[in-house]
Design a protein around this nucleic acid. Structure first.
Lengths: 343, 343
DNA sequence: CTGAAAGCGCTAACAA
DNA sequence: TTGTTAGCGCTTTCAG
């Protein structure tokens, strides 16, 4: 592994010149240029990124923290981020936090030490004091999908409260009143928001909340399966289940089918996210769609804005707010309802 | 952003001592230790990873190259890799190559420059000369899922040829003879292998190959959809379709359903990979399963072995060979066949 | 257009 | 147990 000095010596020029052909080619004569390039080639020289980053005091990597890479939502975000990062010549450090606050903090420290250029935090569980740590180091970050007010940061998110409210309301409109909810892990604020939306919709419709209709899941297929099984054992079986994400909805569908019941006739199911799978399973899942790829894209653009223009000290943080959209498909029993109305 | 010198001055010790409390705490007196730690805390000192890596000439990141993060197969591999990397205190640089050889090469160069500790290359399209570049820099790498012989490298892969052979044979056993194949992009060796397995099985059964029964897809849902549409237009509609991966099989299922045909009665479908979705769609997909998470795990372990014990110059490369497994579910029409036999 | 040299922040001899 | 100092490989003034 040759270094710049050896190349310089071999080519009979100074290290400064070698450095220049790499960084300021316009300020080097054509002949020298050619000579140096050839020497590099011959010696298989690759500049040392550490040394460069150290000298320049900047890196060309950003960090992406996601809670669970196995949830198809996050690869979409990652794709969005990657698309712009690659275009900017940046690499992505991928961190899977497993919805574990400690692991997330661990990563934070490692990454600050690695001097990443910026952070994209999705569904983060970090608290204000953790974020303060990032701010103190003066490295930009943007949060994706964490819908809280009390934090001063760049954010892009959809309105979870509203999405949950809408889909619950839809269920009510279709005609159900015994509506259950499988929540995600309740230490994620997003899931609290969703529950709040669910409760609000019921309340507005004059339907009283029933604690046995709310069960906590874990955002995974299995959690939905278990949650649904539990709900089916209620004294009064719910007519509809709102799972806080599609993965759990899919698990719930599996549970219900395997109990010999039909969807939506016996129990209706709806989800949240609109992952690809949602439109492919049987019955096709009614759900709330959020433009995830786009969120990744936007988040990354926001981040690079900060990276390039420096941190805006003046507290000019952007909060980009995307509206979720209701996707009505089969699993909510909407059609049956329509049929009833017109018969 | 305080540096080690400032901390040293503030604490009234030398930089060496500060460095020691970080790297060799056992060689520092308790009092000094405490003092330094407190000072670091107060000054919010975070060591500079670049400087450290430069001085030590080693990094604590590895690179993971995957062709398409949107294919659920790869997040599983990534999870396996991440699990061991995190345990080793390493971070992962994620690179999505989009099955694009040029992009892959680009990444390779960036990553060598970044002095990553090692590479995990999945379904790589890199050629020998590219890999030679890595070897010249003396950085370890392991290949996942690229089943070729002529390369001297650590590898973990399943036998694509055999998997394709098995599932095609299964189709033949069920009773089909007009069997089509939607391939993946043919510049990936894996897909060539799969096609070879398909052809071999037909040949052995005395079924002559029909060129109109082989169409090239792109490993994505959409490619399967298009491929199936095309196949359905053949003069003689195939009785069964073997899609080179599950995503395409899912696309094909969608295409067939939307043509008003039934699976497997009108056309049987089988896939390859056994992604989670395969067991959840209707009809459940018969496919070939490979232990992807485990492959990621094993690959990472192999890599760290090389990283820790240094490169084995003696050409002692490990090739870990995993057997794929046939998962018979509904989409192949196996049950119908069984019924016929027993009636 | 080119070279000499200082410095980025850290680690690890070597000395004390 | 601690301090001094020479690098690690690069970039960039500053001179020429």
């Amino acid at each position: 592994m040759a270094n710049i000095r050896e190349v310089a010596k071999q080519a009979g020029v100074s290290v400064a010149t070698v450095s220049r052909v790499l960084n300021h080619p316009e300020s080097v004569s054509a002949t020298t240029m050619e000579l140096v390039l050839a020497t590099m080639e011959k010696m298989q020289y690759t500049p040392n990124g550490f040394a460069r980053s150290l000298a320049l005091n900047r890196s060309s990597t950003i960090a992406l923290l996601i809670p669970n890479i196995l949830n198809p939502l996050y690869p979409q975000i990652a794709k969005g981020v990657e698309d712009v990062a690659h275009q900017k010549g940046y690499n992505i450090l991928l961190c899977n936090t497993e919805e574990n606050k400690e692991k997330e903090r661990d990563y934070l420290d490692m990454l600050i030490e690695k001097r990443v250029g910026g952070f994209i935090l999705t569904s983060s569980q970090l608290e204000n004091k953790d974020l303060q740590k990032i701010k103190n180091q003066n490295v930009p970050f943007v949060m994706v999908g964490r819908n809280i007010e009390d934090i001063d940061a760049n954010m892009v998110f959809t309105d979870y409260y509203m999405g949950a409210y809408q889909i619950t309301q839809h269920l009510i409109e279709v005609g159900y009143s015994k509506i259950a909810h499988i929540t995600g892990s309740l230490n994620q604020i997003e899931n609290l928001e969703k529950r709040r939306g669910y409760e609000k919709a019921l309340e507005e419709a004059g339907i009283s909340l029933q604690s046995q209709y709310i069960v906590e899941g874990n955002n995974e297929i299995e959690g939905g399966y278990l949650g649904a099984k539990k709900l089916l054992k209620s004294k009064e079986k719910p007519q509809a289940i709102f799972a806080a994400n599609d993965l759990m909805a899919i698990g719930a569908i599996d549970a219900i089918k395997s109990s010999g019941l039909h969807i939506p006739e016996d129990v209706a199911i709806v989800g949240f996210d609109d992952i690809t799978m949602a439109a492919l399973i049987e019955p096709k899942l009614t759900t709330i769609s959020q433009p995830v790829y786009k969120m990744g894209l936007i988040a990354a653009r926001l981040l690079f804005e900060s990276i390039e223009n420096g941190q805006q000290e003046d507290g000019f943080q952007q909060k980009i707010f995307l509206q979720p959209k209701l996707k009505v498909r089969k699993s909510c029993g909407h059609e049956n309802r329509v049929r009833e109305i017109f018969n």
